[in-house]
Design a protein around this nucleic acid. Structure first.
Length: 411
RNA sequence: GGACGGGUUCCCGAGUGGCCAAAGGGAGCAGACUGUAAAUCUGCCAGCUCCGCUUUCGGUGGUUCGAAUCCACCCCCGUCCA
């Protein structure tokens, strides 16, 4: 089924070599000449099991705030909170690590305040690992409010319109102040639809910013992940990956996907990159979190995912379940006194009915979005648990085949 | 009993001769949401044989080429006065 793509590999690999020699060389040389950040003993990654038939694998990522079993799904707490949930709730759902955001916390309350509070973990009362995004995604999502230059990005605050300059150095400074276990390099996430020419320049800019992030980052208690860009162009992806690897000491991320392109195109990019990731570190696919994409990502060698989707669709009245998507807002659940998901044993499913959840959502009661958020995160973290179990038991291929034909896949 | 004010499509509420199947809310029904400017946004919301037609603006009758809008009577509702 992937024969077309596989046939293309040799051609693409040729392209990679070409790029590495003609274009990527400078990055490799620069990287090699820098003093390598020694990975603190608090960090390590080891793969525990490989699927023999695909890229799927399980592993353990050790951080200063605990060990993470991979593949892992990370709930998003942009403003130092997973919207509507307490850290205790989030922990109960099985989440092992949270994502938070540099741009938002810089804007409010300000990274200095978080630093004074003793760092993000203390500030928000979450003792497990945290990853901060760099603000690179806001280059994409707030595209009407920013201006990109080679030096960095000038944002007009989405809150009050005030001007703020984000350079790679400043992004790292903020991330250092926040103190997450994993920090992301400042990148430019180019929009789906960008032409090859623009995608190429955005990708090159991201690499140049990566080097600046790498050089500026001095805190050995935080892992810096480079972000591979290149939009939906195979040659750019391979070039970006190849060049980014040189700066990847603890992990590497794939960004700029799931930004509007067809899923097949995203899968194609992942398939193309799959043979070229560093083996000894986690690969993080940014912004991906629908059940189908998680499974497809794991199959293509991804170890970490994050996404706002479980919490956002929850607040908008939708749940992921083992039976498929349930839009509890819909009228058919008016008198449905059964749980959201009969196979789920989360607090929400053990105690409440669809009719009640529908009532909460339809009356705009905050508990509705809260219970659905709790359930959706629980569902995804447990989906990852099922995936890990399947890999460890050498059953991932069977799991995959069964999953893609189940109602869970397309929801 | 008298004086005003009012009865509009599920609800509230605009509309005071043609541009009105009738603004705008709400409710209802559905869809979207992937490193969160999102408890947000979008669509539908009289009926049909749906580029057109039919039935709607308390009721009945009338004026007019044409009425939710004007007139007459009637029925309700509100406020105030007796």
């Amino acid at each position: 089924m992937r024969s077309g793509i596989n046939t293309g590999f040799s051609v693409l690999e040729t392209l990679v070599y070409f790029y590495e020699r003609k274009l990527g060389k400078e990055f490799r040389q620069q990287a090699d000449s820098k003093q390598k950040v020694t990975m603190d003993t608090q960090f390590s990654f080891k793969t525990t099991h490989y699927c023999s038939a695909s890229g799927a694998r399980t592993g353990e990522l050790t951080t200063p705030h605990g060990i993470i079993q991979t593949p892992v799904f990370m709930p998003v707490g942009t403003c130092a909170t997973v919207k509507s949930l307490t850290p205790q709730d989030v922990e109960e759902t099985g989440a092992q690590i949270l994502l938070s955001n540099t741009y938002h916390l810089y804007m409010r309350p300000g990274h200095e305040i978080v630093k004074k509070a003793g760092g993000l973990h203390k500030f928000m009362g979450w003792n497990k690992p945290i990853l901060t995004d760099s603000g690179g995604f806001q280059v994409f999502s707030l595209s009407d409010l920013r201006k990109i230059t080679e030096d960095g990005v000038a944002f007009s605050s989405h809150i009050d319109g005030s001007k703020h300059m984000f350079t790679p150095e400043y992004a790292i400074e903020i991330e250092n102040a926040l103190g997450a276990d994993i920090i992301m390099a400042f990148d430019e996430c180019s929009a789906y639809g960008a032409d090859h020419n623009y995608a190429h320049s955005a990708m090159k800019r991201t690499l140049s910013w990566l080097e600046r992030c790498y050089n500026y980052h001095k805190n050995e208690k935080q892992m810096l992940f480079p972000i591979v860009q290149g939009n939906v162009y195979k040659d750019l992806r391979l070039y970006s990956l190849s060049a980014s690897k040189e700066f990847a000491k603890c992990g590497i991320a794939v960004g700029g996907l799931s930004v509007g392109e067809p899923k097949e195109q995203m899968y194609e990019m992942l398939t193309v990159m799959q043979p070229h990731y560093p083996e000894n570190m986690p690969r993080y696919l940014m912004g991906v979190g629908s059940p189908d994409c998680l499974v497809e990502g794991v199959k293509r060698g991804i170890d970490m995912f994050d996404c706002v989707i479980p919490t956002r669709i929850a607040r908008n009245g939708t749940a992921y379940t083992t039976q498929g998507k349930v839009v509890v807002r819909n009228g058919i659940y008016k008198e449905d006194f059964t749980p959201l998901d009969p196979l789920c044993d989360c607090y929400c499913c053990r105690n409440f009915t669809k009719a009640y959840l529908r009532h909460l959502i339809n009356t705009d009661e905050i508990l509705g979005g809260r219970l659905l958020s709790y359930h959706n995160i629980y569902y995804l973290t447990h989906l990852m648990g099922r995936i890990r179990a399947a890999i460890n038991a050498d059953r991932f291929e069977e799991f995959y085949k069964s999953f893609i034909t189940s109602p869970e896949y397309k929801q």
